[in-house]
């Protein structure tokens, strides 16, 4: 019975997901293409990134509804302007979509691994929007591009663990994005996601029903971390996220 229910909800989800994407992606693409006739390249890129954010919000707020309930807590009082560096723990493929919730309405790109670029259509759009594949370039190139984006006012979302953790334990952080933060003096916003370990689990596309908890933590301003090196900064942010996750899961 449980298996049948699981299969049913996955059929519902993927049917809705594919239908929603098949309609919304061409419509939104045409809309942005039309706007680009009247806008500068910079403003067109901004529209593309914000449109991706709205599309992802549609997925997690409507399409994901039969599978997961999201409990979102915003503890960050930030102004709308930005840019910010959003740093999040990483347990599931769905994290990339879920980040739309704390990142919107900011114009935002994500730091991704190589494989998301290989997803049909979505990978191409991500590439077009300027998402950065950290494994495809040396650090200097990554740093140059990330700094340029932040200086243009584009926020960046990153998963410094680099890969999805196999269990609930938070992995060691890579320092790349923190070196960029130090260089550009950009505020950092830690994000914690818990409960989506099985939505879907690692190496699977099967979504299990559950409650996803998501906390957007207070912003770490440059003045608060300027005296730290990249190693200490990454571990400070890691500790903040780890403590919050422990509290979130203890309550659960």
């Amino acid at each position: 019975m449980k298996t049948l229910k699981l299969i049913y909800f996955n059929i519902v989800f993927y049917t809705l997901f594919l239908s929603f994407s098949a309609i919304s992606i061409p419509v939104l693409s045409l809309f942005v293409a039309f706007l680009s006739l009247f806008l500068s390249h910079r403003n067109t890129m901004k529209r593309i990134r914000i449109t991706i954010g709205w599309w992802a919000l549609g997925i997690i707020k409507i399409i994901l509804l039969p599978v997961a309930r999201i409990q979102y807590k915003n503890r960050s009082e930030i102004n709308i302007l930005g840019p910010y560096i959003f740093v999040c723990n990483h347990r599931s493929f769905s994290d990339g979509f879920l980040l739309a919730l704390p990142c919107m309405p900011h114009e935002c790109i994500q730091i991704v691994n190589t494989w998301p670029f290989k997803i049909p259509v979505i990978g191409l759009i991500a590439k077009l929007a300027g998402y950065l594949s950290i494994n495809e370039m040396p650090f200097d190139e990554f740093s140059r591009r990330a700094c340029e984006l932040l200086r243009q006012g584009v926020s960046i979302a990153a998963f410094p663990e680099g890969t999805r953790s196999a269990d609930k334990k938070i992995g060691q952080f890579h320092s790349s994005i923190f070196r960029v933060a130090l260089q550009v003096q950009c505020p950092i916003i830690p994000i914690c996601i818990s409960g989506n370990e099985n939505i879907p689990p690692r190496r699977s596309l099967l979504l299990h029903q559950g409650i996803i908890k998501m906390h957007k933590l207070p912003c770490l301003e440059w003045e608060q971390y300027k005296d730290l090196g990249a190693f200490k900064l990454k571990n400070k942010v890691r500790d903040i996220i780890a403590k919050e996750l422990a509290a979130m899961e203890d309550v659960a």
Partner: peptide, 14 residues
């Protein structure tokens, strides 16, 4: 130094 102490390749440069 990577798994237990948390360094990455950039930290090794430091």
């Amino acid at each position: 130094i990577f798994e237990d102490l948390g360094l990455d390749s950039l930290d090794v440069v430091d």
